[in-house]
Design a protein around this nucleic acid. Structure first.
Lengths: 126, 126, 126, 126
DNA sequence: GTGGTCTAGACCACC
DNA sequence: GTGGTCTAGACCACG
């Protein structure tokens, strides 16, 4: 059993949900470098999804450098997840900056942002 | 001439772009309460878009309470934009909370968030 | 009738042949900026190829920035083909450099390269 | 220990990588005429690759005339590597001609080719 | 058994 | 009619 899951009722394409799901597991360190992913057929059977859809998701993940595929052997998590994480963190911060900037134009104050951050980090410190 | 614009190449539906565009103008106070919107056929001609698409956008805006339509007279910005802004601000903060929470799981620190906020508000105070 | 063609006997995937074919037409200036490509279904019928395969090729072309797709309206050549050409030329020169460097290690002389260039440019001057 | 190496992540078949690797060593004169190649099982163990795959590579090398096999004694580099080198050089020049011709259609100039050659031969003369 | 490619046919939102 | 997504089932080279 894997931790990859999809919501069939969602309007976001299934293959994108899988991409996002795997990307998350890798970026959060739950999936380790060079760890093997379930085979296309296995995941297809497990989730009840057509193999083509899984294949499309894996191709996209490979294109993004999250995983690599070795025909005949299977698909594996990129060896250098640290670099992936760093790159992703930068993207995250850029998006966050944009969001906050937008919020500012809609009269959100700096104090509200700070309070929000305090609240979130108070929940569980690590 | 209006400030409503669409990007034909974007993959987000044109009617949604129009909805977002008008919503933004209203929420940022650029469009005032009870101000009249361009007529469906006027905007259709201006943007070179099928009137059906404009109509769909206006219907959605009405459904969201951003604008109201008066039978033969046209469409107008909601009279109480302050309430709209307040409601929108809450939604914004919820989304922001979600984004920040996600960033936290990907090892973004509270300090980075605070620095980001400082930087943004330093740019121009209002 | 378009100029896109495929060789079914070739071992290189059909979708890649289409990608290469369109890329060539664009980079050589035969297809102009914002020119419309045949629709997925039209090209599918013309070449006797499954629509999914065409779709895959078009997706790849879009990913590479060669074309852009506007759902409902069709697919079009990128507006700025000059930039594409420039970028492609750089890649070409890099690959050529690698090839020549390899040739050098296999005892091809500089004179042979120069003669080759002379011969090719003598064929038709432009 | 040999200089033959494979990249498991590459999408080019492993047996082809081995073929190319050996071919290179021979054509560059690093492996001498009548030199013995590692046995199938030795190379299999060294690279951690299925013996069938090694066998397939050696068969292909034999088919191309790069090596010859003597029943129970093993595999050896072709006695006349000079001829091999000459033949390979011709193929190289043909491919190079094709590449340069393609570059020409994409507005690469003769001068750029000449400069490239100059640059490469300036690096180290031999 | 593995990934990669392809066909055939379908449904969807959008315009 | 358009592109985008998905299912079902097939074939291939590779190891």
């Amino acid at each position: 059993m894997s931790v990859i899951s999809v919501d069939f009722r969602s309007r976001t394409p299934i293959f994108e949900q899988i991409v996002a799901s795997v990307e998350n597991l890798v970026l959060r360190g739950i999936m380790k470098p060079d760890e093997q992913l379930p085979s296309v057929r296995a995941l297809s059977a497990e989730l009840g999804i057509n193999p083509n859809t899984i294949q499309k998701a894996y191709s996209e993940l490979e294109r993004r450098g999250i995983i690599y595929s070795a025909a005949t052997r299977g698909s594996f998590v990129n060896s250098d997840t640290a670099a992936l994480r760093e790159k992703n963190k930068e993207q995250l911060l850029e998006k966050l900056e944009e969001s906050i900037r937008d919020a500012k134009t809609k009269s959100v104050t700096k104090e509200e942002i700070l309070l929000l951050a305090e609240k979130i980090w108070r929940e569980s410190n690590d």
